[in-house]
Design a protein around this nucleic acid. Sequence first.
DNA 1: GCGGATCAC
DNA 2: TATGGTGATCCGC
Length: 816
Amino acid sequence: MEAPGGTWMALNDNKAGMEGLDKDKINKIILEASKGSRYYESELKKEQKVNQRIEKMLQYKELITQQQLLRAQEQVEKMAADLERGRCLGRVIVHVDMDAFYAAVEMRDRPELKDRPMAVGSDRMLSTSNYHARKFGVRAAMPSFIARKLCPDLVIVPHNFEKYRAASTEVREVFSEYDPFFMPVSLDEAYLDFTEHLRERQGWPEARRTHTPRTETATAEGRGVEEGSQGDGGSADLSLVLFEDDPVSPPGPQGPAEPVVFGTGAEEAVREMRFRIEQRTSLTASAGIAPNMMLAKVCSDKNKPDGQYCIPADRQAVMDFIQDLPIRKVSGIGKVTEKMLRALGITTCSGLLQQGALLSLLFSELSWHHFLQISLGLGSTHIERDSERKSMSTERTFAEMSSAEQQFDLCRELCRDLAQDLQKEDLKGKTVTVKLKSVNFEVKTRASTVSSAVSSEEEIYAVARDLLKIEIDNASPHPLRLRLMGVRVSGFLSSDDRKSLQKSIVSFLQSSRPPGDTPLPNTAPDNPTPLSGGAVIQTGMSLTARPSKPGRSAREGQSFFQRAEAQRLRGQAGRGEEREGEQGEERGGVSSCSLQQGQAGLTCPICFQQQESADLRSFNHHIDQCLSAGPAQSHGVGADWGAGVGGGRSGLQGERMRPKAAAAVRDSDARAGSSDRPPGTPGTHTLTSSSLRPAESGRPGTLSHRPLCSGASDLTPWRPPLTCPVCCTQQGGNLTLFNTHLDMCLNQDVLQELGPGPLSHNASVTASTEGKGTPEPCQSAPKPSSKNKRCGSPTLPSPKKAKGLNPRNTIDRFFR
DNA sequence: GCGGATCAC
DNA sequence: TATGGTGATCCGC
């Protein structure tokens, strides 16, 4: 594990404007300010979890044979070839990102700030900083007290969202002239498809590409500009000083401004757009131009601030650009993914390609497809307008709150706020989720789905209150010590649902009321049009689908272990093919069945009793019983969440404390051993990394009634040595070692079975469907897709088949 | 459907 | 002394 103060807690210098800093010094200050805090401890814990996930992954990596790698390589190459065939270079996608947006707006309106390091935010947390402040290491999402340590002269300006929204509206008006269907990402960011504009623009006369500066301000592109006819003088010259060492802006010529003529090409058109944005708002924007969204997003960061970068529509140009691009620059690859990939020696996009085979064996199908697409420089070429909102929430952080009464009050208040917001958009949802964060930064969510959709304060609170009460009761006699509470409503009725509901209500009322009675209020408004007003724009923003993710689609391919499982089912059950379309419980039955054959006569690792039934469900149940009878049940309860709220789960863990869920959990535990994590698949009925997680947390009370699962009690004296139920050798009493052994044992099992058989079978499945899903040119192969959207990836077995093969058995999840 | 995690802004 | 809020998605239950 990395030493504290390694890269985990350190300054994130991924953003623009952070180059050439005294990072060591900055990180030291950050570390000093953080050390010992609850937040810091929590971050350390999180880091350790990730480290364990990585260790697990590396262990699995060691089990992979050369032959498997070669097979995987074939598959990856095939997939890459298919993706290559679907590559689209025919569109011009632009990503625009306003520079230090909130800070720039404040500086524009308060010139006295322009020379000073400043940030926009609250007393607690910063939203953004200007480039002056960034030199000190002050950046977005940094707590103010640390920012002040880094930069004692920092000026912190409170948010003024009205102003930002107004500026955003102006910017968007410019956007819409280049792409009326542009996709806003946030107030300061958007994707545009310039393809149509450029087509039309070819025929435009010069006059139409000529723009007269409205002030004497020089443009960032260094063109001389003339005094415009309508100069307003108000914000003149400000953009020049937004960035002290603006790399692009020339010394501001104060001479007369001349009209500026822009060319017809993509770069000129984007330059023109940025010019107009700056003329209009005195704010600068950076832009990226590329054949797809993924690349455009990376490009817009390249020459920030006030610059642009273009990747021409040329395959080699794309590949050259991608070659040494650090993976972290790609939207969607965050801190954790970066660290996991780094552990495999992958830091650049070309590394993703080189290690494609390995990644396909270690990560879920979705993940490695994503990686492969990134490595080929592919991304969505189709800009999707925002989809429907899926949830709405409100949450609040506060000083420690331990009184149940206060907590209920707050909960009600949150419900009230949320109800108001929901009603503004005329939304009703069936699922209410309560989010709690302890003073130790441990986050929990508890959800409940009700039969009829809710939207009023009372309706939401009725559900939320119960959820909260369960948690409070579970913690009793200790209080919940909270630092945050949130309420979310999701599971909205679709607009169709609402319309038909409305219709049926109306017709019901019409049939039962005399004509002429008071009509119902309209509960199904038309979709609001973007750009029609502040609130609407805000909505449009948050509705935006994430653009940068790759082609998610049906769970078509299978990971290494999925294929292993498929083979096992085929070989042992002999009827896997017919059952593949079935789900849930049925699949459990199949796997359970196959396990019975392979593992007859299981020995309980706790009591050493050979169990008569080889049925995993019974076996699991027995282990639960065995563990429940353990002597350490009387350990103390925890401080923050109270007793027995288990974070992780495993077949050996047994019941939860939440009575409501206990039965269901037991049932699914039984299934987990037989189906969800079939024999030979990592995690099969073993103490997986996830099942050890509660112990890692080190919270004294967590699972204290389950000493077996507590890291601190891995060697508790009462426990007898453990015997591996697979190889029947005695494994000592250390649960972690036992766990590793069991995984190895089970995996070895699979790996040995994984001869040419399963893979070649899989390959033939793949081949047989080839072409069916081949992406058409210029459609959004690598774009994010929801479950019911069409599959964007070629060469995929049918969804039905994939489903039958239990796509859940993917490895990367077991690294958690 | 639930809960934990990850990610973006 | 002290580290946000909102929304989405994935994955394994």
